[in-house]
């Protein structure tokens, strides 16, 4: 077998065994021939020493079969594309949830600030003494901070699952295994500590001011159901 016969048979065998990047491989064998010819070997000798194209192609295939792409590639790609549609629904829900939490946080902060500053846009806020208003205002701002921290986490989470699943898809389809990404967000230790402190404090302030505000309003209004005493729902 001469050089050209060997290379073309190798090419066919590589294709038959679904080995990718066959041009790259062929190039390596072309160089091998070139070097050996320069050393004075004949094409037939070189081909014989290389081993049969069938055996060589099988060795290239051997390394591939360890990958997960053992089934037909077209089927895998089709299945993965189908899966993407359902995954996208989950991602959109995740992002929507994060946005909802963030919007609630903004609303809560707005009302809280209105209560503290006694600004009453178009009479939306019902009557209460300023002390109650102040405490409930602080309570709502604390709630807003807590929700803002939570929405920060939810955004990070949503972003991470999208990233991780893109990596997962890529690995399955292309077969070259990159390290899988974690499915939960990875914060720096400092960020994590800060997030935890903010959450802990805001929840504590929220709880304490809520109870304090309720009790104080009940005392000030002289009624357990202070909202009726102050005619909130009339």
């Amino acid at each position: 077998m001469n050089r050209n016969e060997y290379l073309s048979r190798l090419k066919t065998e590589l294709k038959r065994n679904n080995v990718g990047e066959s041009e790259d491989i062929i190039e390596e064998y072309e160089q091998h021939f070139a070097f050996k010819l320069a050393d004075g070997f004949s094409e037939e000798e070189i081909a014989a020493k290389l081993g049969s194209p069938e055996a060589v192609a099988l060795q290239f295939k051997g390394e591939r079969s360890e990958d997960k792409t053992s089934g037909s590639k077209g089927f895998i790609i089709a299945a993965m594309s189908f899966a993407v549609v359902f995954e996208a629904i989950v991602y959109i829900l995740f992002f929507a949830w994060a946005i909802t939490v963030f919007a609630t946080s903004l609303a809560s902060a707005g009302i809280g600030i209105a209560l503290i500053t006694r600004i009453n846009p178009s009479g939306l806020i019902p009557y209460m003494p300023y002390l109650s208003s102040l405490i409930f205002g602080v309570c709502l701002v604390a709630f807003a901070v807590c929700l803002a921290a939570a929405s920060y986490y939810f955004f990070a989470y949503a972003k991470q699952i999208v990233k991780a699943s893109i990596r997962w898809h890529k690995n399955i389809v292309s077969g070259n295994a990159l390290p899988p990404l974690p499915w939960s967000p990875q914060f720096a230790a400092k960020t994590k500590r800060k997030l935890r402190t903010v959450l802990l404090w805001s929840v504590t302030v929220f709880g304490v001011t809520l109870i304090l505000g309720m009790v104080l309003s009940q005392i000030l209004s002289g009624s357990l159901e202070f909202w009726h005493a102050w005619n909130w729902f009339v």
Binding site: Q31, H32, I46, K49, G51
Partner: peptide, 29 residues
């Protein structure tokens, strides 16, 4: 380079010359 490795190995161990390139590819992958 690939040929250098192939020569080095076949000098010491009795293998077909063509065996080295699949190994190199696997190591790269």
């Amino acid at each position: 380079y690939g040929y250098e490795i192939s020569e080095y190995l076949s000098k010491h161990i009795n293998i077909a010359d063509g065996t080295v390139y699949p190994i190199l590819r696997k190591l790269k992958n």
